[in-house]
Simulated assay, not measured.
Amino acid sequence: MTAYILFAIFLALDIGTGEFNKPRARCLNELGINIASSALGFTLRLLPIVVMGALLQACWPAGKGAWAEVNPWLVVLPMLLVDDYANYWLHRSGHNVPWLWNLHRTHHTPTCMNITMSIRTSALYYLLVPVNALAPLMVYTGAVEAAAITLAIRLTSLYLQHAGYRWDLALRRYAPGRVLLDFAERFLALQDYHHAHHGVGRYGKGSSNYGNLLNVWDKLHGTSMGHPHCVQDAYGLPGGVRVPGWGEQMFWPLVRARRAAPKPVARSTEAELAQARAVIYTADGTAVAVRSGGA
């Protein structure tokens, strides 16, 4: 319940501060997909949860209710660590493995950050997130309260990160707020940290800051760019990257755009290569001469 109250608060702040009045903020490719993919995600997640529940019943019948008497926090803390570390690698792979990027790209397409894009992603990506296995495990073993707490913490983190209203910069105007955030940002991936991951421009870097709840995984693996503590220049996909249509964003690989075949690069002659200012090689090994500006 706390997480949903927080969502309502940030939604009101985003509306009140004009986040939804920004160019393209209310178009189909932004707000439309934000809402549709979120609704689809809550529906699709039932599939892996049901499958995982059936597997647990078949493979570990003695485990049913095994954690019912365990203090919920003794379950929450290790589950959060496992979930967050697995999410770090899934998220990082989503930027480095081409087919996973095609799924995760949907989350980075919006040019406007606001609370409605918190869980925006493609349909298939929803099926890959670790909580789909961990939540049924907790419920099956009787740790229902722990499962609820874990979900509340995860949702709260997402809402704090994706809100368009910069609540963190507002807190930093006051000394107590700066002290609080300086401490929390040592280990938590909060709004500034995640906005830098979505940012395009001077203060953003999509190939860093992958941490979902904690930023310690980025520090451990060398993928943290830190906290710029400023408003990003822009958000969205880098310049030159194709923005897919809504169908491809939500249902890739079932929906794919038709692309024209690329024109082959002409191979330079030996004479051109000998006189070239520099030589570059394409992915297939084709040598191309780079001529000087006066040539």
Rank of each mutant, 00 (worst) to 15 (best):
169 L>W: 01
170 A>S: 11
171 L>Y: 04
172 R>C: 12
172 R>W: 03
174 Y>M: 09
174 Y>P: 02
175 A>W: 15
175 A>N: 06
176 P>Q: 04
177 G>Q: 03
180 L>D: 02
181 L>N: 14
182 D>M: 08
182 D>F: 12
182 D>N: 15
183 F>P: 01
184 A>R: 06
185 E>T: 12
185 E>Y: 02
186 R>K: 14
186 R>I: 04
186 R>L: 13
186 R>W: 07
187 F>Y: 04
189 A>G: 03
189 A>C: 04
191 Q>L: 10
192 D>Q: 13
192 D>E: 10
192 D>V: 06
192 D>G: 13
193 Y>E: 04
194 H>D: 04
194 H>T: 08
194 H>I: 09
196 A>E: 05
196 A>D: 07
199 G>V: 14
200 V>K: 02
200 V>D: 00
200 V>T: 03
201 G>W: 08
201 G>S: 07
202 R>P: 00
202 R>S: 07
202 R>H: 08
203 Y>M: 03
203 Y>P: 00
203 Y>R: 07
203 Y>D: 06
204 G>E: 01
204 G>A: 00
204 G>S: 05
205 K>Y: 09
206 G>R: 13
208 S>T: 15
208 S>E: 11
208 S>N: 14
210 Y>D: 00
210 Y>G: 01
211 G>Y: 05
211 G>H: 09
213 L>F: 13
213 L>E: 03
215 N>E: 05
218 D>H: 07
218 D>L: 08
219 K>C: 12
219 K>Y: 13
220 L>T: 15
221 H>S: 08
221 H>L: 10
222 G>Q: 05
224 S>P: 00
224 S>D: 14
224 S>C: 03
227 H>E: 01
228 P>N: 00
228 P>A: 06
228 P>D: 02
229 H>C: 09
231 V>H: 15
233 D>H: 02
234 A>K: 11
236 G>V: 09
236 G>N: 10
237 L>C: 10
238 P>G: 05
240 G>N: 13
241 V>S: 06
241 V>F: 03
242 R>Q: 09
242 R>Y: 14
243 V>R: 14
245 G>D: 15
246 W>S: 09
249 Q>A: 07
249 Q>T: 07
250 M>K: 12
252 W>A: 05
252 W>T: 05
253 P>E: 08
253 P>W: 12
255 V>A: 07
256 R>N: 10
256 R>W: 04
256 R>S: 15
256 R>L: 00
257 A>L: 14
257 A>Q: 15
260 A>F: 02
263 K>H: 13
264 P>S: 05
264 P>L: 02
265 V>M: 13
265 V>Q: 11
